[in-house]
Design a protein around this nucleic acid. Structure first.
Lengths: 255, 255
DNA sequence: AAATGGATTCCGGTATACCGGAATATTGAC
DNA sequence: GTCAATATTCCGGTATACCGGAATCCATTT
């Protein structure tokens, strides 16, 4: 993963691999399970897990040696958020969008070369759509992904996305050239929407939140049943764009 | 800091020191500032900062080489919170407390041997009391601190708290023996309140949130002007205790 | 009990991460 | 422009972190 050749891997990288793996696993694991999943030497992982537990970056969950993400991560993240004030800035904006549209709204962003939902405000619908919070999803599967990559060149995008991520959940393959076109379309219109590819009955909308360098750092998005998406298309689009513009302004003004 | 002797420090520890230092600094810094603050070799810090930036654990903030906590921390923390569901569980409880008391309410916990405010719900008062979110504060300065240590023995507590943390902000020194007594009192009553030591006109209340092992993992607390604290003493106390019990129940039931 | 299978700890060699110090780049003052 | 002061990069030696493999521990089964 981090280490493909014949050489030793750095402890830092291994440690971060452990954290990322536990995010993906979504549940406490034993050192040996982690080692196998990461494809890392067992003895190294035992060492590292002990170190990470000692510094509360990981936490012992049960008496059987299972560990999970620890409170130290929360501490660092709170300080991160204090600076960018994401939490308290975004929440009311999502609530406003859900109020206007009745749909579940989300703040999305990238982690490495994957997309994930960073914050979610559930709508009133009885059924629940969309990915779990914090779950990493291939970028081409998402409307937001088009926007989040739009500052990159075609070549950069192709280098950035793992080949296998063009395989859609239904087993078909998305043509990278088509994907690039949709990225450019999203870039031009500063908006993107399409029928979901995770299911057959919903439609995704996404609006970009630009940082100071005109790079799309986040998106606001909603996922709605197709019929509602069609009848309220302009309402939904405007609700998202308004929210995204407001959010960008607040983030840029430093408050 | 991490390394006092003559030996090399581990990269992991240095990296975590960097993160903790940036939390404390509260603002982006250059590698060299970090190195001096941490008392670490410059060349090592340059190396590490580059590594951490590459993995988005740190983030380049400006063109002058300044870095700050990065989005990767947020990603990990979101997954941490998904598991323990702190965010969405605690928020409404704090809101309820603030509703009942009109005061600012907080969720507090430990990071290492320091206290910090993990979540805050501001009351309606025109002036603002209490520490910043995420700011590390000596445990003896806080009402919550008494509860958060109450599972430890006297000796463990004395070993745990740095000597200098008994120096109060007004320059006077708290007798460790007195502190231990107040810890035991808090333990017996499952509650603690006292006149603030950070100022002369407020009173702090704290109620413990117990984990599955009857260890006090968090506290709920409020800080109120002395007169209000006196006239509404029972109201405030009950609001906090109700909230804390409710929170403990929710956390233990896994939802 | 004995045996089996797996998890965890222990241990020693070696690749390399860490660090001191020198070289170079950058900034700002004059 | 020159110079001084500071920040950053470069480089090589050595302490040690990483890792393979063996030993030990711990449940379960026979």
């Amino acid at each position: 993963m981090t280490n493909s050749g014949k050489t030793k891997a750095r402890g830092l990288d291994r440690a971060f691999d452990i954290l990322d793996h536990l995010c993906q696993a979504g549940a406490p694991q034993r050192p040996i399970e982690i080692a196998e999943a990461i494809r890392a030497p067992k003895s190294s992982i035992y060492d590292l897990v002990a170190l990470l537990v000692a510094s509360s970056v990981l936490e012992k969950i049960d008496g059987d040696g299972r560990v999970f993400l620890g409170p130290k991560l929360n501490f660092w993240s709170i300080n991160y958020q204090k600076h960018f004030d994401l939490g308290s800035t975004v929440r009311p904006i999502l609530q406003r969008i859900t109020e206007r549209t009745k749909e579940t709204s989300q703040l999305c962003t990238l982690d490495g070369n994957k997309y994930y939902v960073a914050m979610m405000n559930e709508g009133s619908r009885p059924f629940r759509i969309s990915a779990e919070i914090g779950e990493r999803v291939p970028i081409p599967w998402t409307a937001s992904g088009r926007l989040l990559l739009s500052h990159m060149s075609d070549q950069e995008i192709l280098d950035f996305i793992p080949q296998e991520d063009f395989e859609l959940p239904d087993g078909s393959r998305l043509d990278p050239a088509d994907f690039l076109m949709s990225v450019r379309q999203a870039q031009d219109e500063k908006f993107f929407d399409f029928d979901s590819i995770a299911d057959t009955f919903t439609h995704c909308f996404a609006a970009p939140v630009f940082g100071h360098d005109t790079v799309c750092r986040h998106t606001l998005c909603i996922i709605a049943p197709k019929e509602d998406a069609a009848t309220h298309y302009d309402d939904y689009k405007n609700a998202l764009k308004d929210g995204a513009d407001l959010l960008a302004a607040k983030l840029l003004s430093g408050k």
